[in-house]
Amino acid sequence: MADLLTVKDLTKQYQEFTLGPLSFNVPAGYILGMIGPNGAGKTTTLRLLLDMAAPTAGTVTLNGDTTPAARALARAEVGVALDTTGFPESWRVADVDSAMALFLPNWDAARFHELIDLFGVAKKTAYKKLSRGTQAKVNLAAALSHDAKLVILDEPAAGLDPIARDQLMTLLQAYIEDGQHSVILSSHITGDLARIADYLLYIVGGHQLFFGETATLLDRYVLVKGGRGKLTPELKKLGLGLRETAVGFSLMMRAEAARNLPAGLTIEPVDLDALMIYYGKEVQADAQ
């Protein structure tokens, strides 16, 4: 199983924010989901991968290439749709098509128009007159139409309605099915990520909290629930994140710590949303 992307100790130091060190890899045929609250460093990570910013330390190996110039030329094998980039305002779908064909040797115009039709994008409308969600669809169609080995998507579902989101998730799953293609997907919509991501990179406040298989991350934690009277100081100490209501509490903790709990407590599996809310809050509180 070859890695399309390997990141080792990647660090970026800004005046008021430090990202990393991050270490992760993306094997061919898998989807890596990047999760974390706003300002966690997800977009900065993607920008570092694309050499839009220079790292302070660490290495990025993209399809075997380790220098920025070599990675730049290898980008014919990378499809990108970032939240912050787009196409010139006056361009229509045909202009995007011809511009991409200019740069990308494997550009598949038929596939691009197929995706544009699937997403229901008006072909004659200028890019600037499209809604944000429709612009995102044009960006996505462009990223997925040149048989890129690695597709990098930053919040691709942010402006999409549920139907389009479902279409996108199905498309991405089909895209990696042959075992030759991979996707890096940053998203706040954890339900989507839980559904399709094989691996997760969890970043909070610039720190890498987890990288590994999605199931491993979710199996690692449980949610313990009970009435208020059951919340003892000992129990609190075991918790990684606590939420209290007028009648009871829910406490996220490591699964092994929940093995010998007193009777009367309910133990439930966590989902990604709960993990982000409980764990993220706790880490942010620690950081402050």
Partner: peptide
């Protein structure tokens, strides 16, 4: 145009070096 739509970012995603 670059300023309006982040076309610099688009160029960074295409197989061309900064030079």
């Amino acid at each position: 145009s670059n300023q309006q739509r982040g076309v610099d970012g688009l160029l960074a995603a295409l197989p061309v070096t900064r030079r």
